[in-house]
């Protein structure tokens, strides 16, 4: 739905809101909050459309628009994400910022918007953060070295429904970084454990399970903090990924220490 253009359907119920947005010109610039009043916000708008409206207003005024990441706007790409009233992706559970609608706020609301913060998520500009540390974690474990040949028949490897379901639960992770943003320790355990679990649970993922676990955990720890089991990440996750996967990662990491990985044909540190 496009931003309101004064159509009859939206004029009556439109909201007046005030947003306080973190403005920062560049990675090393000094940032500060700035207030903006918006008095023609449709409750049908998504949060990002509200920001679009704000940017149009800023453009008209000749000011620099607010930079924020977004792509698919349907909750599956993981590009968008910001702290909205002190919660990653805002007050609605299991929802990415693009799927959060303004009807969740009351008219006259004062909304504070801040970028995700972590040492390894440096701010590019305004609300846009560099989440490439996640790519480093994926790189360290996200491939297999076995020659796979041509595509096998779809059902050649039997996978029980339950396994496929749980693996899919983990694979839902869109890598938005809300878990890191939510964690008081700036830890990336939920992201890493989800990425590990969706491979480690599948028969195809067994071949390099233990190396992958050790390598991805190691890379994660060189960028992010450690888990103290608050459970904030699970609550903030737009895909509601369970911290059960963190427990699985912890167990796999300890198991990997005890495996005879050399005889399993895997590299031994």
């Amino acid at each position: 739905m496009s931003p309101a253009n004064g159509d009859a359907q939206t004029t009556n119920a439109n909201m007046k809101i005030k947003v306080t947005v973190w403005r920062q010109a560049g990675p090393n610039a000094q940032g500060a909050f700035k207030d903006y009043d918006l008095d023609d916000i449709s409750p049908e708008m998504s949060f990002l459309e509200m920001l679009d409206t704000l940017n149009e207003m800023l453009n008209d005024r000749g000011e620099e628009p607010v930079a924020f990441d977004h792509d698919c706007r349907e909750g599956i790409c993981g590009s968008c994400g910001m702290m909205i009233d002190g919660v990653p992706h805002g007050p609605e559970r299991g929802t990415a910022t693009c799927q959060l609608h303004m009807r969740k706020f009351s008219s006259g609301a004062h909304i504070k918007i801040e970028p995700f913060r972590a040492s390894s998520f440096p701010i590019n500009k305004d609300l846009s953060v560099d989440r490439s540390a996640f790519d480093r974690i994926i790189e360290s474990g996200g491939y297999i070295s076995a020659p796979t040949g041509t595509a096998p028949d779809a059902n050649l490897i039997p996978i029980p429904k339950g396994v496929a379901d749980v693996s899919m639960d983990a694979a839902q992770c869109i890598g938005c970084g809300a878990c890191v943003a939510a964690c008081p320790n700036g830890a990336a355990q939920l992201f890493t454990s989800a990425k590990l679990a969706h491979l480690n649970l599948m028969p195809q993922g067994q071949a390099e399970r233990w190396d992958r676990t050790v390598n991805m955990v190691d890379t994660m720890e060189s960028y992010f903090g450690s888990c103290t089991n608050h459970g904030e990440c699970e609550a903030a996750c737009p895909k509601e990924i369970s911290i059960d996967f963190i427990a699985l990662m912890n167990k796999d990491f300890v198991k990997a220490q005890l495996k005879q990985r050399r005889l399993a044909g895997q590299l031994f540190p």
Binding site: G86, R93, A118, S119, P184, G225, H230, E234, A236
Partner: peptide, 16 residues
């Protein structure tokens, strides 16, 4: 070290 600069607006904890 993992969060050298903290949030500048109040956090709203959901689970902690």
């Amino acid at each position: 070290k993992a969060r050298s600069k903290n949030y500048q607006s109040p956090r709203d904890y959901l689970a902690a």
